[in-house]
Design a protein around this nucleic acid. Structure first.
Length: 597
RNA sequence: UGGGGUGUCGCCAAGUUGGUAAGGCACAAGGUUUUGAUCCUUGCAUGCGUUGGUUCGAGUCCAGCCACCCCAGCCA
């Protein structure tokens, strides 16, 4: 794969922010600047890469993508787009033991769903195994890498500690010939796992442990999901990643902070390889003289309170059955958020709002909730659904009579049209909208008071019928025929509640989701007891909910605002026309909850 | 105790060569409202981890100190 045409420095520079700090129309609009964009703009100005910007998103296919990955995706794809550059999708598949095609498929789907398009074909580090092997041979011949026959345990001892320097491996001075022979035979599958490794010969006394002759190839007789059984040896991340970047002519290699200590190694590998060979193995269309090595830049990973973000822990939640799957709506995975009802735009906006820095913080879950409310308030049609039905009988409404009311689908967007809703003598309202003994400032229904039924009439409660336990089971009310679309004369009705017609409502299941953990920082101490603060009420399934009939034609994944309740979406897997299932994405902001508590 | 980082409002985050602290979330108070929603208005850091120094002037420069994060996988 050759890289796309480069653009001129001027074009790229023009799309930046102008002198007044206003973003020009186009890709950079509304995306806040950050230190990485500053670096890129500087490079564009100095013509470092001839005006070219090439990034990559390099997931390892060993799990599903989560919202932390979304931050990286938005950064890498966003920055490429902003400067007329390109972003590759490359699977960093150098450890087949933990990887699978299932994860590859899921990752691709998530990125597309988020709304990003990678440049050209999908890349695989494993597609570079031949080249990687040749480069390793080059290092070996140059005396810059050697085959070490220390066991993993021994190697650890020789490595030293954080404060004590390491000691050179007894195999460190094997001749180039012997190393070539051994390494070749490693690749030929002559040795068992772990008996040898290929190590870069750098500095066992380096204060940076990554530079103490890091292993760059290990023996693993294992099937690879892409290369099959071709290789019994696999390159390590530090060795494969920088070369893969160089081969794809990546200009800015963006990664998270924990790789900062690896940057000297990233640079060492590339600088100790023959630039001409590197260039000719690369995508570069230009001459070697304009071939510039990629620069690794680190930024802080995303943390959100009341959730965990490590793949290891997410995997554990799935495997041990604390959630249903990787796409459980409670998971911070992209597929989970999708199923919960989050939109791609809301996640992109969230990532933009959070920003890119080098300081690690914890973003408030409220910020994510705000992003989805912000999007859905504009885009989600309104509907009514009673979660906890309480029957209302309008004693003065004619029996067997039904009138068809017309309600707008959105209070502000006329273009979203209208829907019909039958009104009749028997209705359902939500049990929480009636109180026999109302708390202070209660604006809903009580005996003897009036309330507006949204989009319909004002009703007054005359009598409450209770069961043996004293629980209200039915309300006898009367409606004011003069209040359809009109305010009553001489009195003010301040409460408005939602309702559905009893006969025509459809029975639906509603899944009420809440945060997965009830502790702000679940992996606070010891790191392993994060499962102890799992929220036992993160999923409450409500059956027998009554939804307005217009919802019957809602398609999977469609989002609605159930008025006064929150945003809900049709579950993409479990909902059927016969038995609809809605997931609660997020509640509405609720100032009443603050007042009443 | 080695190395690498980070510290600006409760949270996130701007702050280009030192010139007198953006914005968002949250919160609070008003206004509009047939969603206690949305929307609108207003308020919200004499202060930039801390202590000194340089300077007419420092979040921005210098020095010391403190706190927190990452690194000892043949994981990424």
């Amino acid at each position: 794969m050759k890289s796309p045409d480069s653009v001129t420095t001027n074009n790229a520079a023009n799309s930046i922010v102008n002198k007044n700090g206003e973003a020009n129309a186009g890709a950079t609009a509304s995306v806040p600047s950050n230190f990485i964009r500053h670096i890129i703009e500087q490079d564009l100005q100095t013509g470092k890469h001839n005006g070219r910007v090439q990034t990559r998103f390099p997931p390892e296919p060993n799990g599903y993508l989560h919202i932390g990955h979304a931050k990286s995706i938005c950064l890498n794809f966003g920055v490429a787009k902003a400067y007329n550059g390109f972003c590759n999708l490359r699977f960093d598949d150098t450890n087949p033991e933990k990887e699978s095609q299932e994860f590859i498929n899921a990752i691709k789907a998530d990125i597309e769903w988020l709304g990003f398009h990678w440049s050209g074909e999908i890349r695989y580090a494993s597609a570079y195994f031949d080249a990687l092997y040749e480069f390793a041979l080059q290092l070996v011949r140059a005396g810059k890498a050697y085959v070490c026959s220390l066991s993993p345990e021994q190697a650890r001892e020789y490595r030293g500690t954080l404060t004590a320097p390491g000691t050179p491996s007894p195999y460190r001075n094997r001749s180039a010939e012997e190393n070539v022979d051994l390494f070749t035979r490693m690749a030929a599958g002559e040795f068992a796992d772990g008996v040898h490794s290929l190590r870069a010969k750098i500095d066992m006394a380096s204060p940076n442990i990554n530079m103490r002759d890091p292993v760059i190839y290990r023996i693993r007789h294992i099937h690879h999901h892409q290369t099959g059984d071709k290789w019994p040896i696999y390159p390590m991340y530090d060795y494969a990643h920088c070369i893969s970047d160089a081969m794809e002519c990546i200009t800015h290699s963006l990664c998270t902070l924990e790789f900062e200590d690896h940057r000297p190694l990233y640079d060492w590998i590339l600088q100790n390889l023959d630039i001409t060979t590197l260039h000719s193995a690369s995508d570069s269309k230009d001459g070697v003289e304009s071939y510039v090595l990629p620069r690794q830049i680190e930024f802080a990973r995303l943390n959100i309170n009341y959730t965990v973000m490590s793949k290891r822990k997410l995997k554990e939640l799935v495997v041990q059955g604390y959630v249903n799957r990787w796409d459980d709506p409670r998971m911070p995975t992209l597929s989970g958020l999708r199923r919960r009802g989050f939109t791609p735009a809301s996640i992109r906006n969230f990532c933009d709002r959070v920003g890119i820095t080098r300081s690690e913080g914890v973003v408030d879950l409220g910020m994510l909730e705000h992003s989805i409310r912000d999007d859905l308030d504009r885009s989600a049609p309104r509907a009514m659904c009673v979660l906890s039905p309480l029957k209302v009988i309008l004693t003065n409404y004619p029996e067997n009579s039904v009138e068809l009311l017309e309600l707008s689908c959105h209070p502000k967007e006329e273009a979203m049209g209208k829907r019909e809703l039958p009104f009749a003598r028997e209705l359902f309202i939500d049990a929480s909208d009636f109180e026999e003994i109302p708390p202070p400032q209660y604006k809903r229904l009580t005996v003897g008071t009036e309330v507006r039924l949204r989009g319909a009439y004002v009703i007054r409660c005359d009598q409450v019928i209770k069961d043996a336990d004293g629980k209200p089971v039915e309300l006898l009310c009367s409606y004011d025929p003069a209040t359809l679309g009109l305010n009553p004369q001489g009195r003010k009705v301040q409460g408005v509640i939602h309702w559905v017609p009893a006969q025509q409502a459809i029975d639906v299941e509603v899944r009420i989701y809440d945060r997965l953990f009830n502790k702000e920082n679940p992996d606070d101490k010891s790191g392993s007891d994060y499962k102890k603060c799992l929220n036992t009420e993160s999923l409450v399934t409500l059956t027998g909910c009554k939804a307005e009939p217009s919802l019957r034609k809602a398609l999977p994944e469609a989002s609605f605002q159930f008025e006064r309740e929150g945003y809900f979406c049709v579950d993409r897997y479990d909902s059927t026309p016969e038995k609809m299932v809605f997931n609660r994405t997020v509640t509405l902001r609720d100032s009443w909850a603050k007042i009443s508590s």
